[in-house]
Structure formats: structure tokens, C-alpha cells
């Protein structure tokens, strides 16, 4: 079953079209990464998924149910939208008590459990206004996770966290996904998305440019073997003579053939046999950030 399903979602804030015909499907247990520059429409889509913004056109289904007045699965959803905010004069525990009541939860242990799980025990009685940005983020995540939702919608979940916190949250999200929780997240930290997401969508100026799973992404990333020798110019000519596509770059030779990427040792062997000294050889793989920029720039140039 699709946990999230949008059909031709369009949102206009005259004269701007914030979202233009966005149709996505997110399956159970997936971690769906949503990428886009500032103002691309990520947060607008997240707010539409949470019923905070009404689309100009199109429909949303969550857990197979239309998102309308009769939608009754809000306790299956946890969310964190943009900057985490809390009641500044209330402590961490008191803030969680507010949402424990509003979510109509009965198990009092849920608060203690989530505080423990997100390493907030030391700050349980600290007022929210005295928390660091990272701990405010943890409190936001605690509100989103307290009721063990089946769908987590997170906007920039690792903002403000230190490296240890990022690793910890990444582990937590992977653990939740493994237990069947669907995670929909947007992030500017593309490296983070690449480590987490099982599927990725790229949005630009309100349009969905690309949607692909981890295998498809791996296929589409540019890969090449980069070599440095004692004479790059002659070495490149040597490789081209051997049916490789070698191009001289900035102090190195880029060999973009599939065979060169799959068997870089053959490239080294060829060069050594022809009397060149190989100073450095490695296989370069484009990262998600480079792929993302290439995708949106490619679209802009069309």
C-alpha cells in the first residue's frame, strides 16, 4: 500500500506557482528524500501533506485515505516542519505533556521513553528557551516520535545537530524504517539524504524533475577513472590509441569508459607497459550534491 500518494498537486500563490502537478507515491517502510533549493516548493508540499495548506488543484491520500475533513489517522503521523519550536517557558517534559494531551495519549511512559531514546534525560527539566539548537531539534523530534507514528514527515531533521547527533538520528531513522515506519524527509544536506534515502525526488521551481531509487541513482551518477602520470599528455594519447576515451583535465587524465571504471587496473597496466609512471589512479563517483546540481542546471539549460 502507498502510504503517501499525491495526484497532480498544484499550489498557486498568485502570481507564483509554488507546486506544479506534483504526483508522488511513497510505499510502506521507504525513506523518501525530497531535494530542492530554497523556495523550490519542498515545505509547501510538506504542509499540504499535513493539511496545513490546501492545494489549488490535485488530491492527497495518506494510508489510502483522502486527506479531507474526515481524515482520522493523525496519530499515525509524526512531523517536524522547518525550525523546531516549543513553548519557551515550559521544560522539555512540560512541552511533551502538552502534545501528550493533544494527541489524546494515555500511556504516561511514552514521555519518559522518548526522552530516554533521544538522549534528552539530562535536559528533561530545562526550559525550552535554554536549550541549544541541537537539543531543540531533539525536542522537535521527540514530539514527532513520541506516539510511534507509522509515517514520519521531517523537514530538515538534522539541522543544528552536531556530528554525533547526526549519526544518532540517522541510525534512529534507519531503525524506524526497518520496523516499517515510512519516512518522508527533505534536507539541504544532500550527503545525509544519500546515506538514508531509499528513493529520492528532485523538485525545482515547483516542478518534479526527477524521481529515482537508490539503484537508479547509482546508475545515473557519473563515474570515471582519474589518473596522474609522469607525462599526462602522452599517456592520454596512449589510452586513446587503446580505444579508451581519455581526456586531459586539471593535472590528471579522466577516463570515462565503463571498462575503465570497472577495471581500473587494466588502465594502470596499459600505462606501465608503455613506459609511463602512474603516480595516482582512482575511480571518481559523482556524489548526490553534484548529481542534484547537474540535474537542475540541465533543466535550466533546456
Amino acid at each position: 500500500m502507498n502510504i503517501i500518494e499525491t495526484a497532480n498537486i498544484t499550489k498557486r500563490f498568485k502570481p507564483l506557482t509554488a507546486l506544479d502537478n506534483i504526483s508522488i507515491r511513497v510505499g510502506e517502510g521507504e525513506i523518501y528524500g525530497f531535494l530542492g533549493l530554497n523556495g523550490a516548493g519542498k515545505t509547501t508540499l510538506i504542509r499540504i501533506l499535513l493539511g496545513m495548506v490546501t492545494p489549488t488543484a490535485g488530491a492527497v491520500k495518506l494510508f489510502g485515505k483522502s486527506l479531507d475533513k474526515r481524515f482520522d489517522r493523525w496519530n499515525s503521523i509524526g512531523y517536524l516542519v522547518e525550525t523546531p519550536c516549543a513553548y519557551p517557558n515550559l521544560s522539555v517534559v512540560e512541552n511533551l505533556h502538552v502534545y501528550h494531551s493533544l494527541r489524546q495519549l494515555t500511556d504516561k511512559k511514552l514521555i519518559a521513553n522518548i526522552i530516554e531514546r533521544l538522549n534528552l534525560a539530562h535536559y528533561a527539566d530545562t526550559k525550552a528557551k535554554h536549550l541549544s539548537l541541537g537539543n531543540q531539534q531533539r525536542l522537535g523530534l521527540a514530539k514527532a516520535l513520541m506516539h510511534s507514528p507509522k509515517l514520519l514527515i521531517l523537514d530538515e531533521p538534522v539541522n543544528g545537530l552536531d556530528p554525533e547527533g547526526i549519526v544518532e538520528i540517522r541510525g534512529l531513522l534507519k531503525e524506524l524504517s526497518a520496523s516499517g515506519t515510512t519516512v518522508f524527509l527533505s534536507s539541504h544536506i544532500l550527503g545525509e539524504i544519500s546515506k538514508l534515502a531509499s528513493r529520492i525526488a528532485i523538485i525545482h521551481y515547483g516542478k518534479l524533475l526527477d524521481e529515482l531509487n537508490a539503484d537508479e541513482l547509482h546508475e545515473r551518477l557519473i563515474k570515471k577513472t582519474l589518473v596522474k602520470t609522469n607525462d599526462n599528455k602522452r599517456a592520454a594519447a596512449c589510452l586513446n590509441a587503446a580505444q579508451y576515451h581519455a581526456a586531459l583535465g586539471d593535472g590528471e587524465i579522466a577516463v570515462s569508459d565503463k571498462k575503465a571504471v570497472e577495471k581500473p587496473e587494466e588502465v594502470a597496466k596499459r600505462l606501465v607497459e608503455n613506459g609511463f609512471s602512474v603516480k595516482q589512479l582512482y575511480v571518481f563517483t559523482e556524489n548526490l550534491e553534484q548529481y542534484f546540481l547537474r540535474t537542475i542546471r540541465g533543466k535550466e539549460n533546456v
Partner: peptide, 17 residues
Amino acid sequence: DSTVKDLLSLPTSRATI
């Protein structure tokens, strides 16, 4: 306090809040 967004997608209806 920017807490309004945390009151909108809950099992407790907006009117009740």
C-alpha cells in the same frame, strides 16, 4: 512562539483546540 504549526495536524480537532 511559532508553535501554531504543531497544533494543526493532530487527532484533537482545530475547533476543539
